[in-house]
């Protein structure tokens, strides 16, 4: 049973998951949605399908609380931004709420303007995000995912890291994981989760 104190802690949580189309942000958002629903909260998860999924910048919103109305998070509204790619963390920085935290993969994926030489991939993004006032927790999720047995489990490594900041038992996360990921990837994803956590 969820205690009142935990419930209070969670009064409203807005989590943005950002990354590059194809990195598995949909699965991560569904895992979070399931976790928070299991914990007894009203939940809304807003996804992106279609054209922008093709290697473009993608954003998913996960919101929970006693009652959630809007499915989206606006500028200045995210308690957490979980980013699967470094440039994407910087792109969505203005969505961070005061006191919010960025959890980002340090992996860099060049967007097409950088590939063609029309633009440069900015340097020292972590330092610059901190200079802008953001709390940044950066980790090499791609290496951890490879260590866990599947480079595709970057999404779950980052969920493992996010779990550090949630006052919910690890067993609840693992239950949501079991309910969300395909059974044949469960072992690799469990490893990925604990390496991230």
């Amino acid at each position: 049973m969820r205690s009142e104190s935990v419930k209070k802690e969670f009064a409203a949580r807005n989590i943005m998951i950002v990354g590059v189309g194809g990195q598995g942000s949909l699965l991560a958002s569904r895992l979070l949605g399931r976790l928070l629903m299991n914990a007894g909260y009203d939940v809304k998860v807003s996804e992106v399908h279609g054209m922008s999924q093709r290697g473009g910048s993608v954003v998913t919103y996960v919101r929970c609380g006693e009652r959630v109305y809007s499915p989206i998070i606006d500028e200045g509204g995210a308690d957490f931004i979980v980013s699967f790619e470094l440039l994407e963390a910087a792109r969505w920085l203005s969505y961070l709420a005061p006191g919010g935290r960025i959890i980002t993969n340090t992996q860099k994926i060049d967007p097409m303007p950088v590939i063609t030489g029309a633009a440069e991939y900015p340097r020292e993004l972590i330092e610059r995000m901190r200079a802008a006032g953001a709390e940044v927790d950066a980790l090499d999720a791609l290496s951890l995912a490879a260590e866990a047995g599947s480079p595709k489990s970057v999404n779950i490594v980052l969920m493992g890291r996010l779990s550090r900041y949630f006052d919910l038992p690890e067993a609840e996360w693992l239950r949501a994981l079991e309910e969300t990921v395909p059974p044949r990837t469960l072992e690799a994803n469990k490893n990925a989760f604990s390496l991230g956590r």
Binding site: G22, A90, L93, L96, P122
Partner: peptide, 22 residues
């Protein structure tokens, strides 16, 4: 309504990431 929030602003040019053919 929601009070105007001082959103963090990064000192960097962020190149766009349009969708591409796979």
């Amino acid at each position: 309504g929601i009070a105007a929030v001082a959103a963090p602003v990064i000192d960097a040019e962020i190149p766009p990431r349009p969708p591409v053919m796979c």
